[in-house]
């Protein structure tokens, strides 16, 4: 990690790409994970209860959950990339604790990247369930 800058150029804040910032981007990756988790759980539960029965194969649900996994990872990837762009705006580095709009912008970006990373790991963990389990038993 680069050495932290002690001061930052004044002109940076003038060129901030967004005028209004919200907390939504920060929470988007874990929200995508949560949606993925619930939809995967519901798919498996309905598949086993309504489609193949408790002794049936999970094959169809596995394909569906595999597709969900890819879509979720792509979604989290896009959010994380946007976060990274915000984090690397200008020249200042972490811990992003200046009292400026630019550092607030970078902080939100950095936190988005971190949450994106956690969401990717959590998604892969959940996806492992369908790698190892092939039936509704």
């Amino acid at each position: 990690m680069a050495q932290r800058m002690e001061s930052e150029p004044d002109s940076e804040s003038e060129a901030l790409p967004e005028r209004r910032e919200t907390l939504w981007l920060l929470a988007l990756s874990p929200m995508l994970w949560m949606l993925y988790f619930l939809v995967s759980y519901a798919t498996a539960a309905i598949w086993c209860a309504k489609v193949v029965g408790r002794d049936g194969s999970l094959e169809g649900a596995r394909i569906a959950i595999g597709v969900y996994t890819v879509l979720t990872l792509v979604g989290i990837g896009i959010v994380t990339w946007r976060g990274f762009r915000k984090h690397s705006f200008g020249t200042a580095t972490v811990p992003h604790d200046f009292d400026t709009p630019a550092d607030r912008h970078r902080f939100l970006g950095f936190a988005t990247v971190l949450l994106g990373g956690l969401s990717v790991v959590a998604t892969l963990y959940v996806a492992l369930a369908i790698v190892f389990i092939g039936s509704c038993t």
């Binding site: 759980y41 498996a44 086993c48 649900a61 959590a122 963990y125 959940v126 492992l128 369930a129 038993t137």
Partner: peptide, 19 residues
């Protein structure tokens, strides 16, 4: 509950240890 449901929740339970 079906094992696959347990596995989903087991995975999330391990993931929460990270943060």
């Amino acid at each position: 509950l079906p094992n696959v449901s347990l596995a989903f929740f087991s995975a999330a339970s391990e993931a929460v240890a990270i943060p």
